[in-house]
Design a protein around this nucleic acid. Structure first.
Length: 352
DNA sequence: GACCCTATCGGGTTGATGGG
DNA sequence: CCCATCAACCCGATAGGGTC
């Protein structure tokens, strides 16, 4: 119930933002004036807003607006149809209309304005047709930076684990982080914006405020990425199985508590955290693990594609072990996490 | 009201483009 | 020629509408 309410509000806010931005952009590029008469009017026909365009000559003209965040060739026809259903002079208000889309809309004789200042209105004596203006990025306050969304977190993780990587070409970074090339650009942009990265041109890039970045990553990881990696929970049928199995052969890694146990001998693991490939069946069979939502073995998908340069090849990189421990919010685990931080993480912060 | 199904949304990837 | 950037495209997640 609460959720539904919130979503409705979010959508309304978003529509308002688009509407206002489009109004301003239109006024700037055309010199004409738009008045927003109503937002989300109730009644038989349901446009998202009603607005009025004041031309210098001729009388003001009302338009019934359909606000759409995002228009593609596929959704354009549907939007046009919705607006026609108003049975009134309609106008599409959206974030951005590309030139080919503008042509199509013109072909449909569907008026539009967008937040970049593109517009088409053919309503004599009023005629406006502006295309080719690029979309300006909307610095949405409150939105989570892409650097801390699931794929962005993979990139940041790789950068944090491998201090030298930040200087490498985007292609190499993409490979290590196991993301598409395009993603790296976004993340770099965000990190610069958020003051986590400086680009000194030919002198290469450098991470700054690494401790803060690390902290941000750990929290965002638990919230954004970890849930997406979850494969399942299992019961072990044999004691100490995880101390005996050959991790490297199966492409799996120990994380969280058991990894910490190996590193510190300070902890007797309760939950066994494992990172492995999506196709986990072989591993399950080999180790006699049985599906059980309450089981002590939790398996997640491996998301990194680089070798962490240390001697514990069967373990996930220390930053991940640390994040796993912190996420459990268990006193003893947090204590252990601190030890791992001092021994394995603190020192590589200095290398950045 | 609970469930399913479809249309929509936007995050993420691809591929073209153009600069160094 | 190598590399980054940008817009177009794709597809998984999900809201919202329809049905029982």
């Amino acid at each position: 119930m609460m959720k539904k309410q919130k979503n409705t509000t979010d959508r309304a806010t978003k529509e308002r933002e688009i509407l206002n931005a489009a109004k301003l952009a239109f006024e700037e590029t055309t010199g004409l004036c738009i008045k927003i008469l109503e937002v989300e009017p109730t009644g038989k026909i349901q446009p998202d807003a009603v607005l009025q365009i004041n031309a210098p000559e001729g009388k003001p003209k009302k338009f019934y607006a359909g606000v759409k965040g995002f228009i593609t060739n596929a959704t354009l026809g549907h939007a046009a149809e919705q607006i026609r259903r108003f049975k009134k002079p309609g106008i599409l208000v959206t974030r951005h209309v590309t030139p080919p889309m503008a042509e199509r809309l013109k072909g449909l004789n569907l008026a539009f304005i967008d937040t970049a200042g593109n517009a088409y209105i053919n309503d004599p004596p009023l005629f406006v047709y502006i295309t080719g203006r690029k979309k300006k990025d909307i610095p949405e306050a409150g939105r989570i930076a892409r650097a801390f969304r699931p794929t962005g977190l993979k990139v940041v993780f790789a950068l944090l684990c491998l201090p030298e990587l930040v200087k490498a070409p985007y292609r190499d970074i993409a490979k290590a982080a196991n993301v598409a090339l395009g993603t790296v650009g976004w993340v770099m942009y965000d990190l610069k914006q958020l003051n986590f990265l400086v680009d000194r041109g030919k002198h290469g890039r450098k991470l700054i405020n690494v401790d803060k970045l690390l902290d941000t990553w750990i929290h965002a990881y638990a919230r954004e990425l970890r849930p997406k990696l979850y494969i399942g929970r299992y019961d072990a049928t044999r004691e100490k199985w995880w101390e005996k199995t050959d991790w490297q052969k199966t492409g799996t890694f120990l994380g969280g508590e058991p990894a910490a146990a190996r590193l510190t001998a300070y902890l007797k693991p309760e939950t066994i955290t494992v990172y492995g490939p999506e196709e986990i069946n072989k591993f399950l069979l080999k180790n006699h693990l049985i599906k059980n939502p309450q089981g002590k073995v939790e398996i997640y998908k491996t998301f990194w594609r680089f070798d962490y340069p240390w001697n514990y090849k069967e373990l996930a990189p220390p930053l991940l072990i640390y994040a796993d421990l912190i996420a459990t919010a268990d006193d003893r685990n947090i204590e252990t996490a601190r030890i791992i931080y001092d021994q394995y993480i603190d020192r590589f912060i200095e290398k950045h």
